[in-house]
Design a protein around this nucleic acid. Structure first.
Lengths: 141, 141
DNA sequence: GTGCTTGCAAATGCTTTGCACAAAA
DNA sequence: TTTTGTGCAAAGCATTTGCAAGCAC
């Protein structure tokens, strides 16, 4: 995604394309992976323009509300923002903190439970957790 | 689980059974559902003895380390502690904040991705997210 | 000019930590 | 006595918010 396409993307989602929002969107959609709010802040501010943390957070929330990105929660206080809205899952490395996509086709989920009446499905989050060493953890058992 | 069995449970996991830890364990294993750290704090302190937040957090972490309970993260800053260590998944109601178990047999996951070399599976977290009203949310689209 | 945006800094909410006192081994 | 556990209050993070100044239409 180029900086030329971003404003159109924003408008398509009913978001007024300002310089800051364009930079933030570019940081998220331009770069590959998933970034935390703080990483987005760093990415954006490493460039020419300067964007405050407040704006980063406000904008991220706006993008989530508008269905442009989705938050992936991997640990308390560890939220990544995922520009991939297609159904898919995640691989999280507990040691490195790295988050990787798993295609929807790589995990099959069958037989979701019956939903309570009046409720509707909002989404299914799957996080596969990895740890490095063969015996890096554990003590009991 | 009665207050008589708890000390044995703690010792079985290499945890010295103190009055506070017994109360905390009782709050988690005695009551049904999942509780947040704060709910455990309330539950414990509604009884006779008084336990500080520091001890609640320290003990919860200790229990997690010892494999007695597991944390379930449903939202940033929203962690529940689940006394059920058997493989199973969760249903989270975004509106009420209620967390319900889904038996491992109610969802089938097939074809986990190949793990990178040197890594091993730490667990698979599945959270099925619900929202209430038919049109309670959304604004864009 | 009116309304939406931005940024600062203060505030919030949850969790962790340092240190002294209390209890257990 | 030596080790381990507890509690208070302060510190730490990530995130949110109030309010004034800036921009866009």
């Amino acid at each position: 995604m180029s900086s030329r396409e971003v404003p159109a993307l924003l408008q398509r989602h009913g978001v007024q394309p300002t310089a800051q929002r364009t930079e933030i969107a570019l940081a998220i959609f331009g770069n590959a992976g998933h970034q935390s709010a703080d990483e987005v802040y760093e990415t954006v501010n490493s460039g020419a323009i300067r964007v405050s943390r407040a704006t980063i957070y406000n904008t991220l929330k706006l993008f989530v509300d508008r269905g442009m990105i989705r938050p992936v929660i991997v640990a308390p206080g560890k939220v990544f923002y995922d520009p991939n809205m297609a159904p898919h899952y995640h691989l999280y490395d507990t040691d490195t903190g790295e988050l990787t996509d798993i295609g929807a086709d790589q995990i099959e989920i069958h037989g979701l439970p019956t939903l309570p009446p009046g409720k509707q499905l909002d989404g299914v989050d799957v996080v596969v957790r990895l740890r490095s060493g063969a015996d890096s953890k554990r003590g009991a058992d």
